[in-house]
Nucleic acid binder design. Sequence first.
DNA 1: GGCGTCGGTTCGAAGTCCAAACCGAGGGAG
DNA 2: CTCCCTCGGTTTGGACTTCGAACCGACGCC
Lengths: 118, 118
Amino acid sequence: MDLADLPGRPCPAAAALELVGDRWSLLVIREVSFGAHRFTRIQEGTGAPRDRLAARLKTLVDAGVLRRERYCEAPERYEYHLTDAGQELVPVIRALRAWGERWACTPGQAVTPAPGAP
Amino acid sequence: MDLADLPGRPCPAAAALELVGDRWSLLVIREVSFGAHRFTRIQEGTGAPRDRLAARLKTLVDAGVLRRERYCEAPERYEYHLTDAGQELVPVIRALRAWGERWACTPGQAVTPAPGAP
DNA sequence: GGCGTCGGTTCGAAGTCCAAACCGAGGGAG
DNA sequence: CTCCCTCGGTTTGGACTTCGAACCGACGCC
């Protein structure tokens, strides 16, 4: 992914969003960072449809954010771990969580917590 | 948006992604935080298609992340500003940019800068 | 043999995304 | 007055994604 190829202003944030800025990627990374390393666990934790999850795991591995490791020989089974790049995505998720706690948890929209209320 | 309605694990980060976790929202917020307050400027800065941008601006205003302000009476013209909630999204973008600088700017994938290469 | 788990893949339907054309209100040039 | 431009959108038609659900093969358990 070359920054110059993006349609808008060249910016590393845009490049980051190209890689992990879709509906599921950050949720997947959150789950893996929480210790959910297997397909089924990640699927339960994120709620992503199975095919989407399979595709997303593939692109995240390709992007170098996740590493796929076989944990069972007889029936080929794999689990997913964060690479260093993936690890460093955790602060992004933390920032997102902090924002969500403050603004997205109130019933209704992300309006200021107490406009005229106690 | 109720956390309990989300398919996966209830988590404020998921709620945040519901609101701003699409292709353009964070880019739009970046642009507005850079001082691009008008439709056309935001469109140029993000590279989003016009209809997507119009729809996204609407949902962001509904979500309470942006505020829409008329700046011209005669032909109705509006500009967009960050609310407090929008303002507090800036750290998320900063985190994303930091990550992008480190991992997404290298040509190729987000692999460690020098694994075995010179 | 019959059923369950695990990690996927395949399917058709539904939804979303896109580029490009269109629109209306106004401004400016000729 | 007429023609064309800007601004902020909306509409359109087609491509691309996403979805839930069904299916699959390899294995384990009973």
